[in-house]
Design a binder for these strands. Structure first.
Lengths: 339, 339
DNA sequence: CTGAAAGCGCTTACAG
DNA sequence: CTGAAAGCGCTTACAG
């Protein structure tokens, strides 16, 4: 089958290719009647702009990219990314912008991917996941001038690149207040990778709130895997003054932690209360259901995509804030056993 | 920053642009010494082929696409797709082929996406997920002549399009033999969407094996959501002759079913044994751990990507078979309670 | 083995 | 308001 081009449309409409281009792109330069006739013909013959030709003639590539740098071991464990992608696409779809996804093993490969994409002119901008405290991706993106939006970070200034940030501190305080209200006084935190900005943000809020209330809090860092989540849980519960309530940085570790408790003969929430970040189907379907921080991940993705499109269009887009996660109380939190 | 082009390389090497192109693409027409010099220069100045220019000049787009047609509600629930994508990318990466992922709400939007991609010449081929019994995507792809590979289907002939299939029947028999060996005689199946070929394949194997052994089996179809998984579980267990062992078509429903049992005061595996399809982190981290069908999903994705690249290159690629899922026995299956 | 040139399908100043 | 033409950065016959 032969793909129709603007030359076909021009012939059918009896105008020049230039006129067709103006008509189809909403540019001035053609009469309303001509424009309409051209649009009808394009529709009728099922024309779609050849994305390569459009990209080559100085316009945009019509695609944005996202690199997921995760070791294969922890990939696909959390449902976060599928929902995030789904929200991104919802925002990209009306503008017919495609999403190129690249899964790589490490940070170095991610950097190489940005360089390559830039050289290939394959994408118009990138969504940067999991911003780190000292993130080498940021100077690279600035050097290349590749439009980008940073996600998963704090408000802090990172040069000139736009960002969408989430308040990770307030939910920590809400969770601690909830647990404190139930009577808990000793808290543990099973945290994710310490170099990620949002991990730091949560950790600061955790330490600060406990400090203000003269309470103790212990933190263990992990790689988000269930194995490390279970190990951190056991380590925290083996402390001299063991915590009675645990906060987890992802849903998978929270469930793994709960299972570790069950295997060790501890009841949830009888002996240990559990709160998970990023509420998910997983939190809802286990028994007992997990008290968790909920946010609309798809909506978050949509804000991120909108911000990137704005940056690509040359608008200023500084730091935008996505919705703050809300605490959803389920059956995994209860007053501590009286000792 | 200005991106280097082959004109820059040609100038630096003192040859024509054509020679540069031949040298960089491994075509004959340049001496070994010249080729090497050109490659070194390209490397040194960080040249990457402009993907639009390459695509426009009759060559390939250097990208393949995959549409995920799932209602937002069930998206991101299973970890299948992230691992599948990860495996696909591992195979695409060496050839510098990008993956365009499109999440759409329904079948109609998926069809529209294929038409648009084809018109835009944006991608060189597509990976088709979840083949249906009468799949309208297949005649469309044949009509467009868009290279494709079908996945998640049976061996059955579907016109001229390549496919990678998985034996879904053998694992069902293995699971039933395992449960039968434990003493189970009444079986239930919480199935996925009945229109999917692999659902049908599993269902036939289920009914056939039970028929051969003069045993009874009941099936409920669902949309893979935990809600329908729990409801189907309760419906099956409420039958006059309730099953003592249940097979689930995904991990999420298996966990939701187990939780439904717990909530209703039934023990797993004491009262009900559970087997899940597509072993996952989820199956490992719940308590008790779920007996499940394991396959290397990333390897499956790699075979699919390899097949698509072969088709794009013009090779024949008929029906290839991916590894057959293996039963992993954990704590959710045991002899039935004596009644 | 190498160079000059056409062409892919668009967009966009530039004349009329 | 419209047409003719150049150009984006490659690939690929076609001459030499």
């Amino acid at each position: 089958v032969q793909r129709p081009t603007i030359a076909d449309i021009a012939r059918l409409a009896g105008v020049s290719k230039g006129a067709v281009s103006y008509a189809l792109n909403g540019q001035p330069g053609v009469s309303a009647a001509t424009r309409e006739r051209i649009q009808e013909i394009a529709q009728a013959i099922g024309w779609n702009a050849n994305s390569a030709a459009r990209a080559l003639s100085g316009s945009l590539a019509g695609a944005v990219g996202m690199v997921l740098a995760r070791p294969a071991r922890t990939l696909g464990v959390e449902s976060f990314f599928m929902q995030f992608i789904s929200g991104i696409e919802a925002e990209l779809a009306p503008g017919r912008v495609a999403l190129v996804v690249q899964v790589v093993e490490d940070h170095e490969a991610e950097i190489a991917t940005y360089r390559r994409w830039w050289g290939e002119r394959r994408i118009d901008g990138v969504i940067v996941a999991d911003v780190r405290t000292h993130d080498t991706r940021i100077p690279l993106l600035e050097e290349l001038g590749l439009p980008a939006v940073l996600t998963g970070g704090a408000t802090s200034h990172h040069g000139s690149i736009a960002r969408v940030w989430v308040d990770n501190a307030a939910p920590v305080r809400v969770a601690l207040r909830h647990l404190h209200g139930l009577g808990h006084r000793r808290f543990g935190r099973v945290a994710g990778l310490p170099e990620l900005e949002h991990t730091a943000m949560r950790g600061e809020a955790f330490d600060e709130w406990l400090g203000e209330h003269d309470l103790t809090g212990l933190t263990r860092y992990t790689d988000y895997s269930p194995e490390e989540g279970a190990a951190a849980t056991r380590a925290l519960l083996a402390e001299d003054v063991a915590p009675t309530a645990l906060l987890y940085d992802n849903d998978v570790m929270a469930v793994a932690g709960m299972t570790a408790c069950h295997e060790d003969g501890l009841r949830v929430p009888g002996d240990v209360s559990i709160v998970a970040w990023d509420d998910s189907v997983l939190c809802r379907i286990v028994h007992p259901g997990l008290t968790a921080m909920r946010r609309d991940i798809a909506a978050y993705g949509a804000v991120v995509a909108r911000t990137l499109l704005d940056v690509v269009d040359g608008h200023r887009a500084d730091a935008r804030q996505a919705a703050t996660p809300q605490l959803v109380v389920r059956a995994s939190t209860a007053p501590p056993a009286t000792t």
